[in-house]
Design a protein around this nucleic acid. Sequence first.
DNA 1: AAGTGTGAAAAGTTTCACAGCG
DNA 2: CGCTGTGAAACTTTTCACACTT
Lengths: 206, 206
Amino acid sequence: MDKREEIPKKTIYRLSVYSRCLRRLLENGIETVSSTALAAAAGVKPSQLRKDLAYFGQFGTRGLGYPVEALLETIKGVLGRETLQPVILVGAGNLGRALLRYDGFRKEGFNLVAAFDLAADKKVPVLPCPLLPQEEMVEFIGKNEVKMAILCVPAESAQQVANELVDSGIQGVLNFSPAILRVPEQVVVSNVDLAMELENLSFFIG
Amino acid sequence: MDKREEIPKKTIYRLSVYSRCLRRLLENGIETVSSTALAAAAGVKPSQLRKDLAYFGQFGTRGLGYPVEALLETIKGVLGRETLQPVILVGAGNLGRALLRYDGFRKEGFNLVAAFDLAADKKVPVLPCPLLPQEEMVEFIGKNEVKMAILCVPAESAQQVANELVDSGIQGVLNFSPAILRVPEQVVVSNVDLAMELENLSFFIG
DNA sequence: AAGTGTGAAAAGTTTCACAGCG
DNA sequence: CGCTGTGAAACTTTTCACACTT
């Protein structure tokens, strides 16, 4: 009777993949897709796709498949992507500036509203959003009700900046610094450690 | 009697974390560390750390802990980081160029030997390695026995470039493009999808 | 006493196989 | 008949608890 069964974290992750695939299908005017076809596009097994979707309800028609548009809308809803979330970026070094210009975020509908850096006056080629001094960060977060931040500061200052972010009301941090952040448990941290990814590959190619 | 027990993928991933922590301990002149302390630094449970290490042998001294330097060397060996692996990067757009300049790779001892792009002549501020035309990629990989590649091309051309990489002998690909790559199973692909990471956060902050 | 190494239990995730719907 | 939805089985990973070593 438990309305909300326990949903695997990995399922959530794959939902993003499915949504990408569905969008492409939609663009190509395809209205219905089978679990076999969608799973192939997403690089997973059909049974896994069906199980993933089943956590959220019944969307398919037996003998036919899933309605592309409706399923896409549902997934968007589940992922909380119906309202446009503002996102800030902290640390405009090499990586930070590249991420600011990276069109992948905008393409996927994220709104990078501001960037912060200790040296906000450093001359930087055109950026798609204002680069503000670090001191204004806390106030900005509060005023604009920002909930998500991309953290690109050096490892040494990562924890301190993370503390400020959390205190200002940030609930999700995408952490590019090679530091393990300690945050209250209601705050979510997702680590993207580029060097570690390479190191990991290194092992598997033996 | 199976010498090589099955090692969880996630264990390998954590090994990189441990190695970072150990390096910091070593720099601070600490010679011995307990599973409790190292686990805390790495953000995992002590039992998990011990189990992870146990896959590769017995390194600790009961009642005392682990020898920092020796353990670090062992982990390096396991991860295949004893010899310096050359790495190439394909696709020198915004993200690609930032990764080329990103000192995190070099800091962690990876050698970015060359970058390739269709428009290799585009004017780009100083880069730490040569930017060559795409046509030279295949030959370069063969000649220099490159085994790992960082892929930063647009989604549309990702699969095609991946095919070329694989045909030239690349065994591991760090894929930044939002595309699901199909490769032979002996080739390892690690996907880093930045927009998806944000989307994932979006769900968990509810 | 302090702290590792490890089997065994628990938790989490994927795959299977097939009943049942359109 | 094709294809979804799903309980149950298989598999993977984490956590526990404690014997054992220094």
